[in-house]
């Protein structure tokens, strides 16, 4: 039970970087979200220790920090897979058949939306319109865009990732 008496906090190697981020934003109004953006860039997600650090340094209740993080879908509470597959579910893509592609992805990776494969390789996400409607339907893998897809392309894209991974390993 935490009774406020002990305010000791675990330290990690990125502590001072978080402090730097906060120091840079401290004088600007409403800086919490810009700070969280940068802290997430640092860790790849927003671990509990980082939340606590931000709360303490910015003098914002941790409940509010969490409230903000969990409100915005851009902020992640869990680490993501090595390959972030994000399928656009904007209207244009949907009308042009993003649904079956998503089904195929789920089937191939055996995970649902927002989930990461057990081996930590793939995270499947959906997003709302990348604005690449001209290429609909589209998906991105770590920001790289694959457009004008059909569901037959799915296996190839996943294999591409696996091959990249092997190359890196080798």
């Amino acid at each position: 039970m935490n009774r406020n008496a002990s305010g000791c906090m675990k330290k990690d190697g990125k502590d001072h970087l978080v402090e730097e981020i906060i120091a840079r934003h401290k004088n600007s109004n409403g800086a919490l979200i810009p700070v969280l953006h940068e802290v997430q860039d640092l860790y790849g997600y927003l671990p509990a220790e980082a939340q606590a650090k931000v709360a303490k340094e910015m003098n914002v209740p941790i409940s509010e920090v969490f409230g903000v993080i969990s409100f915005y879908s851009h902020f992640a509470l869990k680490p993501k897979g090595k390959f972030k597959i994000s399928i656009c579910m904007g209207t244009a893509c949907y009308v042009k058949g993003a649904g079956p592609i998503l089904d195929k992805l789920k089937e191939n990776l055996a995970i649902g939306i927002g989930e990461t494969t057990a081996d930590g390789q793939f995270t499947l996400e959906e997003c709302r319109c990348l604005g690449a409607c001209g290429l609909a339907p589209v998906l991105t893998v770590n920001g790289k865009v694959y457009g004008r897809l059909t569901k037959d392309d799915v296996t190839g894209i996943i294999d591409d990732c696996k091959r990249d991974e092997e190359e890196i390993v080798q």
Binding site: N2, Q51, P61, S63, E64, F66, S70
Partner: peptide, 24 residues
């Protein structure tokens, strides 16, 4: 400053601190 609103839409819940049990 313990309670807050967490998550969004129909997943919205009341949270304690960063979504831990009240007793913790």
């Amino acid at each position: 400053d313990v309670l807050s609103v967490g998550f969004r839409g129909s997943e919205t819940t009341i949270i304690c601190d960063n979504n831990i049990a009240m007793g913790e």
